[in-house]
Amino acid sequence: MTGGVLDSVNQRTQLVGQNRLELLTFRLMRKQRFGINVFKVKEVLQCPRLTAMANLHPLVKGVAHIRGQTVSVIDMSLATGGPAIPDPENRFVIIAEFNRSMQGFLVGSVERIVNMNWEKILPPPQGTGRSHYLTAVTEIDNELVEVLDVEKILNEIAPVNEDVSEEVLSKREEREESAPSQVLVADDSSVARRQVKRAVESVGYDVILVQDGKEALEKLKEMAAEGSIYSQLALVISDIEMPEMDGYTLTTEIRKDSSLKDLHVVLHSSLSGVFNEAMVERVGANSFIAKFDPDELGSAVLEAVKS
């Protein structure tokens, strides 16, 4: 399964915005089945020749030259605490775009694309051995499928700068006493939640953290029942891909609710590209920011509270 597996990906965009996604399923060296959102996948190919380089992170098997780009290839079995994948030349690489860059994920085998509803994608159960590497789980053909926290794995290999620059911090203004001091942040990745929290707090706002769109909507409705949401909350920052309810659907639900409809919503995702700009407009979000740039995020918060 390599050649035509992603041929129709551009025709699949209608799924997004209907709380649906498609998972590309794969296996590592164990029986366990994994999934990755097709929208993050650029290509699936037989593992090309890998070049070892000095000072590579232990989880990086080597680099490959793919369509004019040099791409790091990460052993996903090693990255999740399993054994190294042997015979890479007989395995597959999933080329994916995360957080503004391309990576290759070395996997044992690639299976098929499955059309799913985000409501069927659930937060990982607590206490499972690899739970800290998962953002979600689902069931396909009576078999558990794990969705990996790729952002956590990438951050272990190449940590990103999480500090907002002095230039952005200098733009902070004294907040009026009556102005809301809180920002709601929804993200299923523990690493992303920490990064966003740090950026938002550094520009002077308190953060309410939730793990998915469903939890975010419940929290917003709970706050609105206590009094005007606009006196409590400055804005909402939401990931797009999340179990149970994605960020597009969350935004749509916010715009439909008379007590929430004027909230400022920033969608913040490792999914990137022109497609997202169109979807932001379609669901009524105020803006889209690709993960992760602390200055862009800090500036977005400061701009939102001014408007």
Rank of each mutant, 00 (worst) to 15 (best):
F92K: 10
E226Q: 15
G68Q: 11
E43A: 14
G129Y: 11
E162M: 06
Q46L: 12
I254A: 06
H57V: 02
L217E: 11
P159G: 06
R198D: 03
V185A: 03
G284R: 07
G62Q: 07
L28Q: 09
A186Q: 11
I240Y: 13
E139T: 14
I237H: 02
V41W: 10
N142L: 12
T128W: 05
T135Q: 12
V63Q: 02
S8C: 05
R49S: 13
L24H: 13
A224G: 08
Y248K: 12
D206L: 05
R27T: 13
S307C: 01
E218G: 08
N90T: 14
S178M: 03
Q232M: 02
I113G: 05
E119F: 00
G127Y: 11
Y230H: 04
R20S: 13
D206P: 01
F26T: 10
A52Y: 10
I94R: 10
G127N: 13
R91T: 09
V9N: 13
L59N: 08
R27S: 14
T51F: 04
M279L: 15
I153Y: 05
E139I: 09
L23N: 08
I121S: 04
K61V: 07
H264F: 00
P83W: 04
V38D: 03
E244D: 07
V145K: 08
G108H: 09
L302F: 03
D149G: 09
S238T: 04
P159T: 05
A216C: 01
T251I: 02
S189E: 04
D293R: 08
I254F: 06
E177L: 10
V280L: 07
L15H: 12
T251L: 03
A300H: 00
L122M: 09
E151R: 02
G62Y: 06
G82R: 06
E222K: 04
D188Q: 11
V38G: 04
I66M: 12
R282E: 15
L21S: 14
L220C: 05
M223V: 00
A179I: 00
R172I: 04
F288R: 08
S109T: 15
L56M: 15
L56N: 07
R255P: 12
L50V: 06
E162Y: 06
L28R: 05
E176H: 12
V5Y: 03
L267I: 15
A285H: 07
H132P: 00
R33L: 11
K120A: 14
T138F: 00
Q195D: 00
S299L: 09
F288S: 08
E151C: 06
K42P: 00
M102D: 09
D141M: 01
D187A: 13
V60M: 09
V147R: 00
N117K: 14
P243R: 03
I74R: 09
N155M: 08
N99H: 05
G81I: 02
P243D: 09
G3F: 13
A225C: 02
L134C: 07
N276V: 15
V137I: 15
P294S: 04
L144N: 12
N10F: 12
R33N: 11
I36C: 05
V5F: 04
G284Y: 13
M279E: 13
P123Q: 04
F26W: 03
L271I: 14
G35D: 12
L144C: 09
M245A: 07
I289F: 04
E119A: 13
G4L: 13
Q14T: 13
L50K: 06
R30N: 11
V207E: 05
V137Q: 11
D75P: 10
E176F: 03
L263Y: 03
S272F: 01
